[in-house]
Amino acid sequence: MAIDEEHTRPAGVDDLTVEALGNISEALEAVEIARGHLYAFHRLSGTADLTLGKGVDQLREAGHAALADRIQEELVGRNVLQGRWTFQVVEEYDDGYYADFKRLERAARDEIVEGKRHLYEAEMKEDRRTHGRPGHERTP
Rank of each mutant, 00 (worst) to 15 (best):
E73P: 00
A68Q: 13
L50P: 00
R117W: 08
L50F: 05
G63N: 04
G55C: 05
R78M: 11
A30D: 09
R70T: 13
E61I: 03
G77Q: 08
E91N: 12
R106P: 01
G55D: 03
V56H: 01
D49T: 04
E105K: 11
Y98W: 05
I112Q: 11
R117I: 03
I71F: 08
V113D: 09
L44R: 12
D95W: 05
W85T: 10
L50I: 07
L67E: 14
V80G: 02
A48N: 03
R128L: 15
F101L: 13
I24W: 06
R129G: 06
M124T: 12
A27G: 04
K116R: 15
E74R: 15
D110I: 01
E111Y: 07
D94F: 05
F41I: 01
M124E: 11
G63V: 09
D100F: 01
G96E: 04
H42L: 01
Y97I: 14
L104H: 15
L28C: 00
T47R: 08
A48C: 07
L104F: 12
T130L: 14
A30F: 08
D94Q: 15
A48K: 02
A68S: 09
L44V: 03
Q88E: 15
D110T: 11
R129E: 02
W85N: 09
L28Y: 09
E73F: 04
G53T: 04
Y98M: 08
L81H: 09
L44E: 12
V90W: 09
F101V: 15
K116C: 01
G83A: 12
E123H: 13
D95F: 07
R106F: 02
V90A: 14
R128D: 04
Y98E: 07
Q58D: 10
K102H: 07
R78W: 02
V76R: 14
A68P: 09
Y39D: 06
G77I: 12
H37M: 04
Q82I: 06
R103A: 15
E126A: 11
H64Y: 14
A40R: 14
L104D: 10
A99P: 00
A107E: 15
V31D: 01
V80K: 00
V90Y: 09
H118C: 03
Q82A: 12
E111Q: 11
A66G: 02
A34S: 09
A65K: 12
L44C: 01
K102N: 02
F41C: 10
A62G: 02
F101P: 00
N23M: 10
A66D: 15
A122F: 07
